[in-house]
Amino acid sequence: MAKIGDKKPKVILEEFKIKENSEDYGFADEQFNREDFKRNFKLKVIKKSNLDIEFDLIGITPAIANAFRRIMLSEVPSMAIEKVYIYNNTSIIPDEVLAHRFGLIPLKADPRLFEYKLDEKDEEGNELDTLEFKLEIKCTWKNKDVKDSRNFDAMYKNHNIYSEHIKWVPRGKQGTLYNEANIGPCDDKILISKMRPGHEFNIKLLAVKGIGKDHAKFSPVSLATYRLLPEITLLKEIRGKDAQLLQKCFSPGVIEIDKSGIAYVKNARYDNCSRNVYRYPELSKNVEISRVRNHFIFNIESLGAYKPEEIFILAVKTLKNKCDVLLEELNFENK
């Protein structure tokens, strides 16, 4: 695949193009082999927090990485507000715009606990597939004698309507099964509307389970991307002023200079792979910028319904399930 003797398959970034190598066919000449895949595959978690995860998948092809990414975005289910019953809306936001805003509020409810609502005619749904919320709020005067006309907090009550004002209305056994803290909007301070005295909301909201393919509001991630691992090699010792110039050509933290003034690559991982170094021909001939072709860095940010690593696992399971469904049908036909 890559040069003989070169262990890591690399893409070398030249000034205007990728280095052409007549012996390098990329992945096009690589036959899939189960033993090789199992031996070469590695998964490393780099950073993990409540909502974000960064992990490496090593030994896969772009096709596999892209299938996982696409499934995370559009086929892992989540709950979102689907029906909005507006009994009263005297705010300045039109009904249809308001309804759309409600739809885009991410919900904490775990979609695995609910079923898809299959019956289109049944508007209200039942306790297994629908969550009900209400928003009943009115903006009123607090004090009319405030001198500073910009001090809204002193003058009005409820002049900013946030997602925290949406109240969950448990149906059937929902109240005993789930905790209110794990059902409502992911963030308390999502601004829905601004109001002035006399404006009022009286709204019923119904949330259902869906997938991102149907509408982006059902997507469980705010971000799901992958990129290749950058690798920077210094071919010659670079010192003094050149070293400082080199450091400026890359993202902060990528190139460091040691005590004797010699530049070294500290951490190429977070380089943005700009080709700034090619502005200085004397410098660039001693630097090789490349990316590792089978080393994928995934970044996933969950909206709050799942832990980020769960989204990835569900995506892999979804892909497996797709194959299972098709195989079952093919095997059934052949009998």
Binding site: F32, I313, L319, C323, D324, L327
Partner: peptide
């Protein structure tokens, strides 16, 4: 069928790897 089985194998390998 072999292609689908291979994708299943990839998924299983990924799922078996501890995260």
């Amino acid at each position: 069928k072999r292609g689908l089985e291979d994708i299943k194998f990839i998924c299983d390998t990924v799922l078996e790897t501890p995260m």
